[in-house]
Design a protein around this nucleic acid. Structure first.
Length: 283
DNA sequence: ATCCAGGATCTCC
DNA sequence: GGAGATCATGGA
């Protein structure tokens, strides 16, 4: 059973999935992707005037679409209003946003985001995707065909370092286990609606071995929907130094201050447009 | 073959 | 606190 909705403004499935925020998807065809999230394998097909969603294996009902996938794809948010604000008097942001105006920040699971971005450290996106896939197949619950859910905290907490290494985690095996241990012990809430300030949440994330400022910001943004964050990786550092700091060397702290001044509570959106633009424009 | 990747950590100053 | 080396893995 397919679910169809009218084409939302500022929604482009390629921009959304290929912009580097999410790792569990594959392109089946132009404008047609298979995504694993929320314990489901979901087909997403973007047509001229409509979006189609359907599960790989079982029916997708209206109520479930509304409860799970509308929030996941952030369909209730007015991205045109966001773009108007962050591009105001900012030609750099205008260029970045025009490059991929269909980006939306997905409402991902905090636990999956935490592990995924621990894996992202000193790694390339194709390999991050491969390692997350390996871990899901080894520890996650089967969904359909070749699709496995991302493992739960308990499923990963039961892993051994040797086992994890077989998933090609490299030196990050101990980091993943530390995250699983702390999560299982309840030291970090894995609820998106947790009532904790962004800064306090950030500090608890930094307590995990293998989580520094950049990974913490990514988990806050993509896993907890904290849009007042601004992950600074090599690409964002590059684009910010080049266009906002007159080519001068800059620290992440300085970049955070400028982002807070300029983009405030919309920093996370701004960061994703900039990241995708600088990383992809040359291709 | 050497270098590097959505970084983090450890060491040494 | 800042600079440098090191960390698995695999692709260029």
């Amino acid at each position: 059973m397919k679910h169809k909705v009218m084409m939302p403004k500022n929604f482009h499935i390629t921009d959304i999935l290929e912009c580097g925020q999410c790792f569990r998807f594959q392109r089946l065809d132009d404008m047609h992707y298979l995504l694993v999230a929320n314990g489901r394998a979901l087909h997403v097909k973007q047509n001229k005037n409509e979006l189609e969603f359907w599960y790989d294996g079982n029916p997708l009902y209206e109520a479930e679409f509304v409860d799970i996938w509308v929030p996941y794809f952030d369909l209730g948010r007015d991205y045109a209003a966001i773009l108007t604000k962050i591009t105001h008097d900012d030609p750099v942001m205008q260029t970045a946003a025009n490059f991929a105006p269909g980006i939306r920040i997905l409402a991902q699971d905090p636990w999956e985001a935490l592990i995924s971005f621990i894996i992202s450290a000193n790694n390339r996106i194709p390999q991050i995707k491969q390692v997350v896939e390996n871990i899901s197949r080894r520890y996650g619950t089967h969904i359909s065909g070749e699709n496995y859910a991302f493992p739960t905290i308990e499923q990963l907490a039961a892993a051994t370092p040797e086992d994890l290494r077989q998933c090609k985690t490299g030196f990050r095996d101990k980091y993943i286990l530390d995250a699983a241990q702390k999560a299982a012990a309840g030291m970090i809430s894995m609820r998106r609606d947790v009532d904790t300030s962004t800064d306090d949440l950030r500090k608890t994330l930094l307590a995990v071995n293998g989580v520094g400022e950049k990974v913490a910001h990514c988990v806050l943004l993509f896993g907890y929907g904290r849009f007042d964050t601004f992950p600074v990786d090599t690409w964002v550092k590059r684009v910010m130094e080049q266009y906002y700091f007159d080519g001068k060397p800059t620290t992440p702290a300085q970049i955070h201050m400028l982002a807070q001044e300029r983009f405030g509570p919309l920093s996370g959106f701004a960061q994703q447009y900039l990241f995708h633009y600088i990383r992809t424009k040359g291709e």
